[in-house]
Design a protein around this nucleic acid. Structure first.
Length: 190
DNA sequence: CTGACGATTCACT
DNA sequence: GTGAATCGTCAGC
């Protein structure tokens, strides 16, 4: 097993840096003693109040987005298109609503459980809704402490060099105007 | 209360 | 490439 990421990792101000550095880290869930895990291979940064693509754009603060304003190191999980659960890492200090969406993982443990969660269909973990499906993450898990809770992110010592990281615009944020073009998506091939 | 819409995926053409 | 599935969230009345 690896070490939980330090609070100082999550609470930094540069959300795109955190999104880059989450690549190669391992996300582990344990629900009902069923363990699943994978290496984070794709992320997107959402830069809070000044980012038109963010749920917290303009300082929007609702029951759903409230957890984004918590101090970094907890989960923000929300429902998309009425059926997909999307998992985000809340970052920065309290009252600064930054977050990183985890879009893809490379499974490292619990593949049989992951397939079971897909009703026996072939395992797929490329896509934010497929990540939460494989890991068993649902909106009820929003707010969980990522250092101690049922969802954890740990460092298992895998280094991802800047040269390995492909940067590009975020997916599905066309409504964000000019911010849709920001290079806030990061991925690498393990 | 109502209506519009989404940080998506899948099946099908 | 296109459209359906499907419902919580949010703004507006």
């Amino acid at each position: 097993m690896g070490q939980p990421l330090h609070l100082d990792f999550y609470r930094r101000a540069d959300v795109t840096l955190i999104a880059r550095e989450l690549l190669g880290k391992v996300i582990i869930t344990r629900f009902d003693s069923r363990i699943t895990a994978g290496i984070i291979t794709e992320t997107e940064a959402y830069a809070g109040e000044r980012d038109r693509a963010s749920h917290a754009y303009g300082g929007r603060r609702t029951q759903r987005t409230e957890v984004m304003y918590a101090a970094g190191g907890v989960a923000y999980v929300y429902l998309c298109y009425g059926m997909h659960h999307l998992f985000n890492v809340v970052t920065n200090e309290k009252d600064i609503p930054h977050a990183v969406l985890v879009r893809a993982i490379a499974p490292t443990a619990g593949e049989a459980v992951m397939r079971e969660r897909r009703g026996g269909r072939p395992l797929r973990t490329g896509g934010p809704a497929l990540v939460t499906q494989a890991l068993g993450i649902r909106t009820a898990h929003t707010g969980l402490d990522l250092r101690r809770g049922a969802i954890r992110i740990v460092d298992e010592g895998r280094a991802v060099s800047p040269a390995e990281i492909i940067t590009g615009p975020r997916i599905g944020v066309d409504y964000a105007g000019p911010d849709a073009l920001l290079p806030y998506r990061f991925r690498f091939s393990p």
